[in-house]
Simulated scan of single mutants.
Amino acid sequence: MDGPLFPADWWRVLLDLAIATAVATLAWQYPLSAPGTIAIGFGMALALLLRRRFPLLVMAVVYGLGLVQVATVGELQIYDVAVLVAFAAVVTHGALRHVYAVAGAVAAALVLIWFVDPNMGDPLVFGFVVALCAVVWSVSLVLRQRKEAAEAYAERALAAERERDHLVRLAAAAERATIARELHDVVAHSLAVMVVQADGATFVVEKDTARARTALRTIADVGRDALADMHRIVAVLRGDSEDVPPRRPGLDQLDVLAGRARSAGVVISLDVAADGIDAAEELTVVRLVQEALTNVLRHAGSGTSVEVLVRASDDEIEVSITDDGAGTPSSSGGGGNGLVGMRERVLLHGGRFEAGPSGAGWRVHAVLTRRVLQA
């Protein structure tokens, strides 16, 4: 069996030593002319040292020695109290099926003693012995129940701690996913706009300084917004986000996104009819349009025509971004996580997401399930 031979609590070891010493001392009181009686008592005392570790085995040894003693001497001896100690150990520490078996064995021993021991002819003496066995049984059973209750409580506490750790890990993973989406939205869109504007400014800087100046101002504005968003995200990571006012992009941000895309040479038709949606839904709509326009700038480029449609009903919000693929792709490259991020955002709202070719261009279509507000 696994584990130490003796329990780790030294006070229990000392108690077991004290009980074994007491039983051995009681056996030593008998005259040396009865060495068998003394040997039985010493055997019981030694067996009791292991009663916590092997309760059923110790009970079998002590019970067998008791039967031998009764059969040879014909009456109970004072050190036969070891049987009750072993009996209590089984009730307290043994398996439940062994408890009732040992109780039956003790009852059978009492019947045997009634017939063998002449002292048991006195009803008071026999009643005392039976009452003592009943008290030992009752007290041991209470101790067993308290022990099982303590173990169950400890197990529940451990399970609660494991569940708490699991929830913390899940929350941390969800927070990391949220931050990763925000970083992607901020960095990918801002860089895509800045790269397209920088390329455009490079081509027209000598021919049309006004357009080049406008492109550079757009780059500066986009860069400032990106820095502000990055500052907010870093503040969240550092735990001091209370010092930074939150920025929740609303539907008015769609005009800003469309304006930046137009300045990069994209022709945009913006049709929005989504009054009354909440802040979380507005943020999702803005991020979907932002990511879709980022992909247009990367993969379709200047000269592309894009139709942006946002419609809200009592139950759903529909977002559709479709381009004709007629532009000149930029050299920004990259990508690969945008569609995944958009799908995750839509699924958080219990919606549906589709993205794929549409004629020569590309179409992103999402349907968000609106939350039902209880009156």
Rank of each mutant, 00 (worst) to 15 (best):
L14P: 00
D185F: 13
C133Q: 09
D165K: 14
D240A: 10
A34M: 12
A107M: 08
N295M: 07
V372A: 11
V286M: 03
P118Q: 01
D199E: 15
M342E: 07
G74M: 10
A101V: 13
V310N: 02
L191D: 13
V142L: 15
A172W: 05
G265L: 11
E182L: 10
A8L: 15
L56H: 07
G265D: 09
D208N: 15
A8V: 12
R311D: 02
D225A: 10
V289L: 06
Q29A: 14
E318L: 14
L84F: 13
V111R: 09
A366H: 02
A105K: 04
V306M: 04
T21V: 06
A258Q: 09
D278I: 12
A180C: 01
L110A: 04
L26T: 05
L67F: 07
A180S: 13
R164T: 08
K147P: 01
G325A: 05
I277R: 04
A192Y: 00
D16V: 00
A160C: 03
E242L: 12
V372N: 01
T21W: 12
L270W: 07
G94D: 06
R363P: 03
F42Q: 08
W11K: 11
V286S: 04
V58G: 00
Q197I: 00
T322W: 07
R287Y: 08
A27T: 07
G239F: 11
W11T: 12
S241Q: 15
L124A: 11
L49V: 03
A152G: 01
S269I: 10
C133E: 04
D243L: 15
V129H: 08
G359M: 02
D243F: 10
D2C: 03
G239Q: 06
V70R: 06
M59C: 08
T178H: 11
H184S: 12
G335T: 07
L237G: 01
V204G: 01
V310Y: 06
V61I: 15
L65G: 02
T214L: 15
N337A: 13
L254E: 05
L297F: 07
L132D: 04
E316P: 04
I40L: 11
A300P: 02
L32Q: 08
G104Q: 02
V70T: 09
T209S: 11
D314K: 00
T294M: 06
M230H: 07
Y153A: 11
A174G: 07
T218Y: 00
L254P: 03
R287T: 12
A180N: 08
V204Q: 01
V367Q: 08
H231E: 12
S330K: 05
A82G: 05
V187H: 09
F203D: 09
G200P: 02
R311M: 00
I317K: 01
L32P: 03
R211L: 10
L297C: 09
S330L: 04
R238P: 03
V236T: 11
G361T: 02
A107S: 09
E175H: 11
L254W: 06
F203R: 12
T218A: 10
S263F: 04
G64E: 02
E307N: 12
R311Y: 03
V340M: 07
M194C: 14
A101R: 14
E344G: 05
T369F: 03
A188D: 14
R213L: 14
A312H: 01
A86M: 06
L227Q: 12
I317F: 03
Y100V: 08
S190G: 15
L32H: 09
